[in-house]
Amino acid sequence: MKKIIAIEEMAMFILAIFAFSKLSFHWWVFAVLLLVPDLSMLAYLAGPKVGAWFYNIVHHKSIAILIFLIGFYQQLPLLQLSGIILFAHSCMDRALGYGLKYGDAFNHTHLGLIGKNK
């Protein structure tokens, strides 16, 4: 099942790359911004519940799609870019086995435990 999920997530990542190709930004922008959503892990400094909540908001694909659609309908390329980056990053994470977080510990995700303490 994990392999099927990873394949599906990679297909969505490719969709994000295609969507990015329709914007007028240079390709290096995609590469530089792709890992920026992981800065949301800094919220774990406030504790696991706050960290999980903030991390999950930033990594929620529906929010990424909403941001993109607002940018699309308002003709705001930076919002479109933000939505695509958030979506691509979330797809990449899920393809690698990193899921949305539970509030008890960083390594407890909806896809199972991650890290050394599996």
Results as ranks from 00 to 15, higher is better:
residue 2 K to H: 12
residue 3 K to N: 12
residue 3 K to V: 12
residue 7 I to T: 10
residue 7 I to H: 01
residue 10 M to W: 13
residue 11 A to N: 09
residue 11 A to S: 12
residue 12 M to G: 11
residue 13 F to N: 06
residue 13 F to H: 07
residue 14 I to H: 04
residue 15 L to T: 11
residue 17 I to F: 12
residue 18 F to H: 10
residue 19 A to T: 10
residue 19 A to D: 04
residue 19 A to I: 09
residue 20 F to T: 02
residue 22 K to H: 11
residue 22 K to Y: 12
residue 27 W to E: 11
residue 29 V to A: 14
residue 30 F to Q: 00
residue 31 A to Y: 03
residue 31 A to T: 08
residue 32 V to W: 10
residue 32 V to F: 15
residue 33 L to E: 00
residue 35 L to F: 14
residue 35 L to W: 11
residue 36 V to D: 05
residue 37 P to N: 07
residue 37 P to E: 06
residue 39 L to S: 07
residue 42 L to N: 01
residue 42 L to T: 03
residue 43 A to M: 05
residue 43 A to I: 00
residue 43 A to N: 03
residue 44 Y to H: 00
residue 48 P to C: 13
residue 48 P to Y: 11
residue 48 P to D: 15
residue 49 K to T: 05
residue 51 G to A: 02
residue 52 A to C: 03
residue 53 W to T: 11
residue 55 Y to A: 07
residue 57 I to L: 15
residue 63 I to Y: 13
residue 65 I to R: 01
residue 66 L to E: 04
residue 66 L to D: 04
residue 67 I to N: 00
residue 69 L to K: 04
residue 69 L to S: 11
residue 71 G to Y: 01
residue 71 G to N: 05
residue 72 F to V: 03
residue 74 Q to S: 15
residue 78 L to Y: 15
residue 81 L to W: 00
residue 83 G to Q: 09
residue 83 G to K: 08
residue 84 I to C: 10
residue 91 C to S: 14
residue 92 M to G: 10
residue 93 D to V: 01
residue 95 A to C: 07
residue 95 A to P: 02
residue 97 G to Q: 01
residue 98 Y to D: 00
residue 98 Y to S: 01
residue 101 K to Q: 00
residue 102 Y to I: 05
residue 106 F to L: 14
residue 108 H to R: 11
residue 110 H to I: 09
residue 111 L to D: 07
residue 116 K to H: 12
residue 117 N to T: 10
